[in-house]
């Protein structure tokens, strides 16, 4: 209990919220990293998944890429990228690692959603004389939208988690409050940082849940 009150005191201290190492700045970094990488990942993954799903090709790749992504530790990829020449570009390794881990769930879910569209409906659309493009955007994508959005939700939660681990490899974001706490051997700061990260992740998850209602 004492730790919780200490963590609360740490959070209540106004000096911990301002400045470059302050909570507001770290929160903004985390938010920007998550949103920017989510947009980049969607721009890469969704066109590929929609076209593959429309054509019905590359299914094995689209489905298995998620299993591969799970087996590769995010921390390892972050450190490997940090040691490449890319490491000289500030948040470069973090952005690349985040995108790498957000693409698989987007690709898999969008592909499965596209293939899950009732074949009879697609046949009917073709019978009505729709072109491939019309079928894709007016029939298949709207029907696959729940699965596509499910992929976006999983990717967003994954991005928040990976951005946190990025702090271990020198990236910015709320994780830095935790790693700084470990370096200072300050349990209250570690717990306070963890609470901030957990609340942030749950808010992201909650935002997608609300959208479903």
């Amino acid at each position: 209990m004492k730790t919780l009150t200490d963590a609360w005191d740490w959070l209540a201290d106004a000096s911990h919220w301002s400045g470059d190492d302050g909570i507001w700045h770290r929160l903004a970094q985390h938010l920007v990293l998550t949103v920017v990488c989510l947009v980049i990942s969607c721009l890469i993954a969704l066109p590929v998944a929609l076209v593959l799903g429309h054509l019905g090709k590359g299914g094995a790749l689209a489905v298995n890429i998620s299993n591969v992504g799970r087996a590769v530790p995010t921390f390892a990829v972050l450190v490997l990228l940090l040691l490449t020449p890319l490491g000289k570009f500030g948040e470069g390794p973090t952005v690349v690692a985040l995108v790498l881990f957000a693409v698989p769930p987007l690709l898999t879910n969008a592909y499965v959603g596209m293939r899950g569209v009732d074949r009879d409906i697609v046949q009917a659309a073709r019978g009505m004389g729709m072109t491939g493009q019309q079928m894709l955007f007016q029939v298949e994508v709207p029907l696959a939208l729940p699965m596509i959005m499910n992929g976006v939700r999983i990717a967003a939660v994954q991005l928040v988690a990976t951005a946190t681990i990025a702090a271990l490899a020198g990236g910015g974001g709320l994780g830095r409050i935790i790693t700084a706490g470990f370096n200072l051997a300050s349990t209250p700061q570690v717990v306070a940082g963890a609470v901030l990260v957990a609340v942030f992740a749950l808010l992201v998850e909650g935002a997608f849940e609300l959208e479903d209602c």
Partner: peptide
């Protein structure tokens, strides 16, 4: 289980520190 799974790993380990 959904809530537990949403909490990032680094935060989970940190919350268990005390």
């Amino acid at each position: 289980t959904t809530i537990l799974y949403t909490i990032p790993s680094l935060a989970m380990f940190s919350l268990l520190l005390p």
